[in-house]
Design a protein around this nucleic acid. Structure first.
Length: 655
RNA sequence: GCCCGGGUAGCUCAGUCGGUAGAGCAACGCACUCGUAAUGCGUAGGUCAGGAGUUCGAUUCUCCUCUCGGGCUCCA
C-alpha cells in the first residue's frame, strides 16, 4: 500500500498508510496514545481524529488530559447538553454553547419558560442516555442555503449563519462556525441532533461522561443588555472521574474560603442592610488587620520616596468638570448634592485632587518624579447587581498614588515601580505574578500617536527589563493612556487582578499641569496612576480567601490566646499575658469557665496562631504549653523563649 | 440595571396543606476546676425582611418594595 510522510511535533518524520487518519496515526505511535487521542492539529488547524491525512502534513495529537483536549470534550459535552435540553423542552431554541475554563455552558431560548436548579438532574439524566448511546459526532460542510434550510426553525442559528456570511462575524461567531466563506460546518449526532459548529469534537458521545451540571442562570443574547434574555446552564467536564472530583473539591474549598462567610465567622466586618448595599462596617478584629495592612503600606511608601497627602471625600462639581469625570463617568458617580454655593459630588477617584496639589504652585523638573500618595476613600455607584462582598463595593479606599514625571523618567520609574509592587505583594505571601500590557484602542484615545508609542515602549521595556512574561491586550487601554495590570495567583490557584500602573496623557492636559524644565521652558509632565492593593477592602477580601481566614501571626487580630487549666491558674495566665502585651503581642485570656478541650477547640476554630495552656507545672517553672497552629503541642516552653520566638516571627512578617 | 432563586433567633437551618413557630451552635445563669479540638442542667432570645391585598384569621396565598445569592451586563 502507498505510504505518506507525516511530520510529528518533535520534527521527526513518520511513514504511514495513505488512508491514515489522525486516530490511526496516533494508534501506530502507541496503543495508549490512540486511546487518549481526542482531536488533532493538522498543519496548525484543530481537527477531529477522523480527519484524513495527506502527504507532508504536520500533525499533533491532542489527548484528553491536555488543556486543548479538555476544551474539546467540554465543547462536545455542551452539544450533548443541547441535545438533552431539546429532547426535554420541545420548541426550545438553542443558541451558542462554548467550552470555558473548567467547563462549558449552553444558552437556550425556552420561549418564556425558565430552568430551575431542580431541572438539572433531569437534563443530566437525559445527557447520560445520549452518552450511553455512544452517538458519533459526524462533521459535514454544507452550503449557506442548505444551512439556512436545516436551521429554519432555529432563528439564533440563522442569525449566526447570516452574520458570518455577511462578513460581520466576531470572535464569538467564529468559535461556532467553521467552513469557508460560502459554506459552514455542522456536527451531527445521528438523526437526533445537529449543531452548527467549527469543531473539533470527540469521535463519539461515549468518550464523555465525567461531567456535572452546576447552575442555571440567565444571559443576554450576544451579551447585549437590550437583547433577548436566554436561559443558560453551566457545567463542568473532565477527562476522568478523579479529575472531576478534584475540581469539585477545589470548588468546595473556594466556598469554604469565601471571605463573606469568613468575615461573619471571624467577626471581621459586616454589611448592615441599614447602611445600604456595598457599604461595610469594620468590626474590631477586621479593623486590626486592616490597620496593619495600611500601616505596612504607609511604611513602605514612606521609604519608597512618596509624599503623603490627604484630600476630602467631597468636591464641587467644577473639579469633576475639569477632570472630565462628569462627562465620561457620571453614571459611576453618586448623585449630586445641591449646596447653597454650588453642586457637590462624593469623589469617585482621587486623581483630580492630586492634580490640584501638583498645580498648587510652580513645579520644577528638580521635583520630578513627584509621587503623591494617599489612602484615599472613594465612592462609586456600582450597579446593584454587580456588588459582591468586598470584591465589588461602593465605598472603598485605594492605596492610590499619582506620579508626575518627565517623559525621560517614565521608563526608570516603571522599572522601579514593578519592583516595588512585587516586593509589597510578596510580604503578604503572593509569589506568582502575571503581567498584562494594554495598548491603544485606535477608536478611542487622546494624545499624540507619538506619545502613545513612546509610553507603550517604556512599559514593555520595563517589563522586559524585569525578565517577566507578559501578555499584550491590544486595544484594551483606557482612552487616556496605556497600562500594566498585575495579577496574582492565590493559595488555591485563582488569579486576582490587584495592581495597576496606568499612564495618563489626559489629566495633565485638562488641568494644564506644567513644570519648568532645565532650559526654563514650560513642559507638560506625564502622569501615572498606580495602586498596589487596588482597594484596601478588596485586597483584604483576597487575603482572607488566600489565607482561608488563618492570617499569619503578624496580621492576626489575636496572636495568642492564653488558657488557664483551672481558675487557680488565672493569675499566672494574667502575668504571662502582661508580659507578652508589654512586648507588643495581641493577647486574650480565656477564663476557665469551660472545659479546657472546649476552649482549645474554640480558639482553634478562630484560627488563633498560638494557643498557650498554663497549669501547675507552668506556674512552678515560669513556662507555657504552646499549641501553635499547624504544629504539635510543645509543653514546658519558657515564657521568655516563647516571647523571643513570636517577636522574631512578627518582626519578620513571616507568612 | 436585567433574568432566576432566596430572606424564619446572633449563626446554621427545620416547620406551618392558612389557626402568630422549633432544633443545634452562640449568649446568659448555676454546678463542675478540668493539661491540648465540643461537661451537664437551666434561662433568655423571633412584628417569621417591610408594606398592601384576599380571608373570620396570613409567617404560610397574591402583588409591590427592600435586601441577599447565582449569572448577565457594567467596571471612563
Amino acid at each position: 500500500m502507498a505510504e505518506i510522510s507525516i511530520t510529528l511535533p518533535d520534527g521527526s518524520l513518520r511513514e504511514v498508510a495513505a488512508d491514515s487518519t489522525v486516530l490511526s496515526l496516533a494508534t501506530t505511535i502507541s496503543r495508549n496514545l490512540g486511546k487518549a487521542a481526542i482531536a488533532g492539529v493538522v498543519n496548525g488547524q484543530q481537527v477531529d481524529v477522523s480527519q484524513a491525512l495527506t502527504n507532508n502534513d504536520s500533525v499533533e495529537i491532542i489527548t484528553v488530559d491536555s488543556d486543548r483536549g479538555r476544551h474539546v470534550l467540554r465543547h462536545s459535552t455542551a452539544h450533548v447538553m443541547a441535545q438533552a435540553v431539546l429532547n426535554l423542552y420541545p420548541g426550545a431554541k438553542y443558541t451558542i454553547g462554548p467550552a470555558i475554563e473548567n467547563g462549558f455552558y449552553y444558552d437556550f431560548d425556552l420561549g418564556g419558560r425558565v430552568f430551575t436548579e431542580e431541572n438539572l438532574a433531569n437534563v443530566e439524566a437525559e445527557m447520560r442516555k445520549v452518552i450511553a448511546a455512544n452517538q458519533p459526532f459526524v462533521r459535514a460542510e454544507i452550503s449557506i442555503a442548505e444551512a439556512l434550510t436545516l436551521f429554519s426553525e432555529q432563528p439564533y442559528k440563522c442569525e449566526i449563519i447570516e452574520r458570518v456570511t455577511g462578513g460581520a462575524a466576531d470572535g464569538t461567531d467564529s468559535a461556532e462556525v467553521g467552513g469557508s466563506g460560502d459554506s459552514v460546518s455542522i456536527y451531527r449526532n445521528t438523526d437526533e441532533f445537529v449543531d452548527l459548529c467549527l469543531g473539533p469534537h470527540v469521535p463519539s458521545t461515549g468518550r464523555l461522561g465525567h461531567f456535572k451540571l452546576q447552575k442555571v442562570s440567565s444571559a443576554y443574547w450576544r451579551g447585549n443588555e437590550k437583547g433577548p434574555v436566554l436561559q443558560r446552564i453551566y457545567g463542568t467536564a473532565w477527562e476522568s472521574k478523579a479529575a472531576l472530583e478534584e475540581h469539585l473539591h477545589r470548588l468546595e474549598e473556594a466556598e469554604r474560603r469565601d471571605h463573606r462567610r469568613l468575615a461573619v465567622e471571624l467577626d471581621l466586618l459586616s454589611f448592615p442592610t441599614e447602611l445600604g448595599g456595598g457599604l461595610a462596617v469594620w468590626h474590631p478584629k477586621g479593623a486590626i488587620v486592616r490597620k496593619l495592612m495600611e500601616d505596612y503600606s504607609r511604611s513602605r511608601h514612606q521609604s519608597g520616596g512618596y509624599q503623603f497627602v490627604f484630600t476630602p471625600h467631597l468636591s464641587n462639581a467644577t473639579l469633576f468638570q475639569t477632570s472630565g469625570h462628569l462627562d465620561f463617568y457620571a453614571d459611576g458617580m453618586y448623585p449630586p448634592m445641591e449646596m447653597d454655593n454650588g453642586t457637590y459630588y462624593p469623589k469617585p477617584m482621587n486623581c483630580p485632587m492630586h492634580c490640584l496639589i501638583f498645580r498648587g504652585r510652580q513645579r520644577s523638573y528638580r521635583e520630578l518624579p513627584l509621587r503623591l500618595f494617599e489612602l484615599g476613600t472613594v465612592y462609586r455607584y456600582e450597579r446593584a447587581g454587580t456588588l459582591h462582598g468586598l470584591m465589588r463595593i461602593r465605598g472603598f479606599t485605594q492605596d492610590d498614588s499619582h506620579i508626575y514625571c518627565t517623559r525621560d523618567q517614565l521608563q526608570d520609574e516603571i522599572i522601579s515601580l514593578l519592583d516595588f509592587v512585587m516586593s509589597v505583594l510578596k510580604a503578604f505571601g503572593f509569589e506568582d505574578f502575571s503581567f498584562h500590557l494594554s495598548t491603544k484602542d485606535p477608536e478611542k484615545y487622546v494624545g499624540s500617536d507619538e506619545i502613545w508609542e513612546s509610553a507603550t515602549n517604556a512599559l514593555s521595556t520595563a517589563l522586559e527589563t524585569h525578565g517577566v512574561e507578559y501578555s499584550v491586550k491590544e486595544g484594551d487601554a483606557a482612552f487616556y493612556g496605556p497600562k500594566i495590570d498585575i495579577h496574582i495567583r492565590d493559595a488555591i490557584g485563582r488569579t486576582w487582578q490587584l495592581s495597576t500602573i496606568q499612564c495618563d496623557f489626559n489629566l495633565p492636559e485638562r488641568f494644564d499641569l506644567e513644570y519648568v524644565a532645565t532650559d526654563g521652558s514650560r513642559q507638560r509632565p506625564i502622569m501615572l496612576h498606580r495602586a498596589l492593593f487596588g482597594s484596601v477592602e478588596r485586597f483584604f477580601g483576597v487575603l482572607v480567601e488566600h489565607y482561608a481566614g488563618a492570617f499569619p501571626t503578624w496580621l492576626s487580630p489575636v496572636q495568642v490566646k492564653i488558657l488557664p487549666v483551672a481558675e487557680a491558674h488565672e493569675t499566672y495566665a494574667q502575668q504571662v499575658a502582661d508580659s507578652l502585651i508589654a512586648s507588643g503581642i495581641r493577647v486574650e485570656i480565656v477564663e476557665a469557665n469551660d472545659q479546657l478541650g472546649k476552649r482549645i477547640r474554640t480558639a482553634k476554630m478562630e484560627k488563633t496562631p498560638y494557643v498557650l495552656v498554663v497549669g501547675d507545672d507552668d506556674m512552678a517553672a515560669d513556662t507555657v504549653g504552646v499549641n501553635a497552629r499547624g504544629l504539635d503541642v510543645e509543653r514546658g516552653v519558657a515564657v521568655s523563649e516563647f516571647t523571643r520566638r513570636i517577636t522574631e516571627e512578627i518582626s519578620h512578617s513571616v507568612i
